[in-house]
Design a protein around this nucleic acid. Sequence first.
RNA 1: GGGGGCGUAGCUCAAUUGGUUAGAGUACUGGACUGUCGAUCCAGUGGUUGCGGGUUCGAGUCCCGUCGCCCUCGCCA
Length: 587
Amino acid sequence: MRTHTCGELRAEHEGQTVTVCGWVDTYRDHSGVLFVDLRDRYGKTQVVFAPEAGGELLAAAKLLRGEDVVAVTGTVAGRPEGTVNPKLPTGAIEVRAGQLAVLNKSRTPPFHPTSKDLPGEDIRLKHRYLDLRRPAMQQTLLLRHRIVKVMRDYFDELGFLDVETPMLGRSTPEGARDYLVPSRVQPGTFYALPQSPQLYKQILMIAGYDRYVQIARCFRDEDLRADRQPEFTQLDLEMSFVEADDVMGVIDGLMARLAKEFLGREIALPLPRMTYDEAMERFGHDAPDLRFGMEIVDLTDLAREANFQVFRNAAEGGGRVRGINAKGAADRYSRKLIDELTRFVCEDFGARGLAWFKVGAEGKLASPIAKNFSDDSLARIAGRMEAEPGDLLLMVADRFDVTCKALHALRKRLAAELKLYEPGVMHFSWVVEFPMFERDDETGGWAAMHHPFTAPRPQDAERLGTAPQQCRAQAYDLVINGVEAGGGTIRIHDSTLQSQVFGLLGIDETTARDRFGFLLDALQYGAPPHGGIALGLDRVVTLFGGGESIRDVIAFPKTQRATDMMTGAPGPVDPRQLKELGLSVPR
RNA sequence: GGGGGCGUAGCUCAAUUGGUUAGAGUACUGGACUGUCGAUCCAGUGGUUGCGGGUUCGAGUCCCGUCGCCCUCGCCA
């Protein structure tokens, strides 16, 4: 139908007869002559309807409106002097129309894809077919395609095998809430959509497919965020006969290739690594944003000697007093703004208060609470925090985990407000040696921090029975710009050890056999040491595209209430369908 | 489940302290215009101020409830 796209015609095509197809982007009717910018995903080309081609053609063109789909046959011509448009790649030429076919008239659209005013996201989602016509969305989906292509090529070169795993699996109550699919054939039973292909890929290792990779769709029925959708995509991989270093090395190589391809940057390998404990100590979070400093400083020992009760009580009660130094920010934060920061850490992160000092001209700390400290004490705090005139010092005294949450949130917020990093910069790193277990607030028992198949470090295996809280896992998270881009572990390949971990997690033998019997069995038939990782593809694309929300890198995302505004999903079903499935819905 | 923000014309937004007939740009419709490119100029259509209730002489504005979208805490092995 078409001979060229709307993005490819140049001066060299002058004189050729061509047919271009696309959407009417804009039209400029000068009565005697009419211009139409025709748009497709490759670009825009100006089409001219002039009287020489006949009054009938011009009359037909006058009826064109935005988003009509047309085919135009005409001659490529250089534009008259002074009318070249340097803003368009095709701006040197135009197509002098000889024929016009209106392939499909458009209703007046609720918004125009190239309008400068972006409509609200709900409108964009409802009319996603219009939103996806926007050049920015098309570029993003192209970026996503190219990233996936680089990934597939990379893993193919390394001998990885792409294997598909089932979408209809078995529910495992651990972890996130499952999406369930009722079985018609066996009423009252349910499949679960995969939260990840975790168990299948381990089985593939046991089956001898020593390098597996998959771009896998995953499902988790939890509340949504800007970086969380109920269905999302993972780059999932697993390797046999490897240690953590090997898996991280493979991902290092992938990140280097992506950085080179999409940022035009060489990044130094191996990517920097930091232990979980160090990350919590220095940044208060297991996915620290390393694009800027403003590290957390511990003041607990100094607080113990201070007269300030809040600090003293925290320090002596087993808590911690820690702070951050917002360099040069004293003038930027008025008393009112600091009150807002206080409200922020208290209401959102459970802190009981926010202590602050502004560093004056001679390095003297000024604050409503300064009177509670001796000059010597203040000087030591200033020294510890490397305070200089103009700095703003912020401190939280509380349980360790509360200081982590509050200071991490503050650090993130201040960095954004103070523009502590360049928008285009990307920082890649690993956080390693996560704890095996964390306390489950509901049951009071132990819960797996990553998942129940994670192997402890060899030197920690014997502490499983004695000091589980001290066990560190062979786990590694890839962190990009303070975002957890992916995570993985070396798995347990020994059924005895696996049973022991299940036991610690309060999964008794009967339950374990019932749910994971196939895995425990498989582990007894020659399971190689293995491990892997999964990257959140949507997040990776968002990061490389410089966006804010993963909804913008997903063609058809869901809203915060997990609905699809275009299709209306989820929706009610016919009672007959329920009956077939043996289901009844309470009203 | 909790906290916060937003909701006014198809779209993007405005509307002073609660005060007369809710405006602008754009889109759309009609007209003018033979080189524009965010075309321009003239005219016009277009409103249950998300929905429901309340306070008031009077509500887009204040109060209560509710719905929707977004951010966030919890949640997310």
